[in-house]
Design a protein around this nucleic acid. Structure first.
Length: 494
RNA sequence: GGCGAAGUGGCCGAGUGGUUAGGCAGAGGUCUGCAAAACCUUCUACAGCGGUUCGAGUCCGCUCUUCGCCUCCA
């Protein structure tokens, strides 16, 4: 089966072939850096992280560009809108540059903790003013844009397909219910700003042929996408709320200049709701990631996000995340069990062959099919859970695995849970965690304690063995007696 | 008002014409000195009403409800 991707433009799943294999050009709308990242950012960038990881795993060379918006994104689309970064700078009594740098750093911190791989290129809008000016210039020359009082607007009437992505093609009808204030400067109410003249006191401004001012928000993505990825890119991703107007505007600007399709596959991730209602600034129910990470391990959040499909709405609630946490612990525990399970060489019993070795290949196919079907991570996860159930079942019965089977199983989990989905703590990560917590010293002490306890149990001195177990639990270490012997793990977190 | 998505068992969440999604929680069991974990078995489903079909959670129509976008948002 080959990869199928749901294309928002055609509203169907289409077979994906890059324009210039093995290269895949991918652009994803990045954050506007005027505040800390929230759960919505996490859903979007974790989703596209899996897209990138899966494409790379499938053998493509992905060139991934994700912008940082540090200028031009206004608080509303009318002419009265303020620049978000500037507004925050005034609020925090500092420089816009400091604001954008501070929150850019914060954003990457959060994404790193979510195991989101960094884009290959992360251009910022303020660093690409000349490119944006050139684009505007070209649009004016070709009759797609006009200047009024130092402002430049894109003329939607010059691009008959305007609105094709969102289905908002009837501009007259749109105006009746529109809440955007109609301004006299625009030739048509739907026209949007490419360049705006800076008002007095405006902090971020640049010289241009039309005025001292700043670019409109929609422009940066067109300019930077075309600069780094070419005039036609394979995939453009972003949040669903950006379909209109942002992405429709991008299409209009770009295709008006090049006369070529701007994007071959549009991918839009759905939104996060909180207890059933949207997360909105006005509703004051944003779930800040840094706050959330104080309660849950970031990898739990990542797992929680990937348990639903990227095109589905994700409802955040405490109980839902707790359920995910327990589930993920089970996966991690099985992986740890697999790493430490005794192995043997030689023939393997039928059930081991049937449940693990044979099924590894079947599960491998199932999980590939799932991910090839528009990145169906919930199915992929369900396959991993079926698999670990079988591994546990065999280990319960035999207490060991044939070496080759064990390697197969480890490889399966490391590939899909680790490399592709990023929900597994790596061997190195597990070792690193142990090292941070006292490392080898603690390992040594625990070996002694478990040894003592095993002796006590052998002598049926259960009072002593239970005392060791209970007191360790009180100290945050949990003992489990399994067929392979006693094991211990830290209780807190995952 | 326009554009769009969706209503699945106690909760979360896939599926989209015929065969177990999966996770969490519940019940019974195996194992264990006990516990935990794991494993086995198991109860609650497809908003409602019509229609198409040999057969529909899955297709079509209507009704009801929810959510998103059209303002700022990933």
């Amino acid at each position: 089966m080959s990869l199928f991707i749901y294309n928002s433009l055609s509203r169907t799943k289409e077979k994906f072939e890059p324009l210039h294999p093995p290269l895949v050009t991918l652009y994803v709308c990045g954050p506007t850096v005027y505040g800390h990242a929230h759960l919505g950012h996490a859903k979007s960038y974790v989703s596209f992280d899996v897209v990138v990881r899966w494409l790379r795993h499938s053998g493509y060379r992905v060139k991934y560009v994700q912008n940082i918006t540090d200028v031009g994104h206004l608080t509303d689309d009318g002419d009265e809108g303020e620049d978000k970064i500037s507004k925050q700078a005034l609020l925090e009594k500092t420089d816009p540059m400091e604001i954008s740098q501070f929150y850019t750093k914060s954003y990457y911190e959060d994404m790193d903790r979510l195991e989101v791989q960094r884009p290959n290129i992360a251009p910022n809008a303020a660093g690409h003013i000349p490119e944006q000016i050139d684009l505007i210039d070209e649009l004016i020359k070709t009759g797609h844009a006009y200047e009024v009082n130092g402002n430049v607007y894109f003329s939607v009437e010059s691009f008959p397909e305007y609105g094709k992505l969102s289905g908002r093609t009837d501009q007259e009808a749109l105006q009746s219910g529109a809440r955007v204030e109609i301004r006299s400067d625009k030739h048509h109410p739907s026209d949007f700003a490419l360049w705006k003249k800076a008002e007095e006191g405006h902090l971020m401004k640049w010289r241009s042929p039309w005025s001292i001012g700043y670019p409109g928000w929609h422009l940066e993505c067109s300019a930077m996408s075309m600069k780094y990825l070419g005039e036609t890119i394979d995939i453009h991703g972003g949040g669903m709320e950006n379909k209109f107007p942002h992405h429709d505007c991008e299409i209009a600007q770009s295709e008006s200049v090049t006369g070529k399709p701007y994007v071959r596959f549009w991918m839009h991730n759905n939104m996060v709701t909180v207890n059933g209602i949207k997360m909105g600034k006005s509703l004051k129910n944003f779930v800040n990631l840094k706050d959330l990470f104080n309660i849950f391990d970031p990898i739990v959040i990542r797992f929680f996000i990937l348990q639903s499909h990227y095109r589905s709405q994700l409802d955040f609630s405490d109980v839902a995340i707790r359920a995910s946490q327990t589930g993920l612990e089970k996966l991690q525990e099985t992986y740890k069990r697999l790493l430490t399970a005794p192995t043997y060489s030689g023939d393997l019993p039928f059930d081991e062959f049937d449940k693990v070795k044979l099924q590894t290949h079947e599960f491998d196919q199932k999980i590939k099919d799932a991910l090839h079907d528009d990145f169906n991570t919930p199915i992929a996860i369900s396959v991993i859970f079926e698999f670990i159930k079988n591994v546990n079942s065999v280990l319960d019965k035999h207490g060991k695995l044939q070496e080759e089977t064990a390697n197969c199983a480890k490889d399966f989990i490391e590939t899909y849970a680790g490399e592709v989905l990023g929900i597994l703590k790596s061997r190195e990560g597990l070792i690193a965690t142990a090292a941070r917590d006292g490392g080898k010293l603690l390992d040594g002490i625990m070996d002694i304690l478990l040894d003592l306890r095993a002796d006590a149990r052998k002598n049926k001195d259960f009072a002593l063995s239970d005392k060791i177990r209970d007191q360790l639990l009180g100290a945050g270490i949990e003992i489990k007696d399994t067929k392979e012997g006693a094991s211990w793990s830290k209780k807190s977190g995952v």
